[in-house]
């Protein structure tokens, strides 16, 4: 079964079908594969190949816990949550083995940001992909995650709350602090932004 066979079927319906026929699970995977690999690459410094492995691992977890999915949540929030947690866990493991966070900046992940997101207005400064990546790399994980979810993944507060399992008020506070932290790090590291 491929993604074409599942066109027009809602995520929630696909979950139900997957519980009866595993082939439908492939549709869910394919539907989310691209954007979730991109998300893994954004919140970690895994290589593309490693991100694929992490996503496989995360989807095994999705499969194991498919009965836990609660339809009052958006499926995308639930799947992002599992992928987020798996990525953070796997990333910490690699860090404890001494892997450096830094890696070559993949402009593809960030190049459209200044033009199509309101991060500039939100952060009050002009930015480019290189600058964003460098500052994000230096930020504490909790701040980096909310900024990425809000500005790069374009999730709203409720979705971020469901993904990170934090109250919406806390998400708002985290975003504000993350924005301050972003600017402070940029100033401290003397990272200038140009468009």
């Amino acid at each position: 079964m491929s993604i074409k066979d599942c066109l027009g079927i809602q995520d929630e319906e696909l979950v139900k079908k997957s519980l009866e026929n595993i082939d439908y699970f492939a549709c869910i995977y394919e539907r989310y594969e691209k954007k979730l690999i991109r998300y893994i690459l954004r919140i970690s410094s895994f290589s593309y190949h490693e991100a694929e492995e992490v996503l496989q691992e995360a989807f095994v977890r999705v499969w194991r816990n498919l009965n836990e999915f609660d339809e009052s949540l958006k499926f995308s929030s639930w799947v992002y949550r599992i992928v987020h947690n798996t990525t953070i866990t796997e990333w910490r493991k690699t860090q404890s083995k001494g892997k450096d966070r830094k890696q070559d900046i993949d402009d593809e992940l960030y190049k459209n940001l200044p033009s199509n997101l309101n991060i500039e207005k939100e952060l009050g400064r002009k930015i480019d992909a290189d600058g964003i990546k460098r500052v994000l790399d230096l930020m504490p994980e909790k701040y980096r995650s909310v900024l990425i979810l809000k500005f790069l993944e374009e999730k709203d507060y409720n979705e971020i709350s469901d993904i990170l399992k934090k109250p919406t008020g806390t998400v708002g506070t985290l975003i504000n602090r993350a924005k301050k932290s972003f600017n402070q790090i940029a100033d401290k590291e003397n990272i200038t932004f140009t468009v």
Partner: peptide, 13 residues
């Protein structure tokens, strides 16, 4: 092999 098929194989295997 598609990643989706790889996943299904892993789950089944």
């Amino acid at each position: 092999m598609e990643n989706s098929q790889k996943l299904l194989d892993k789950i089944q295997k």
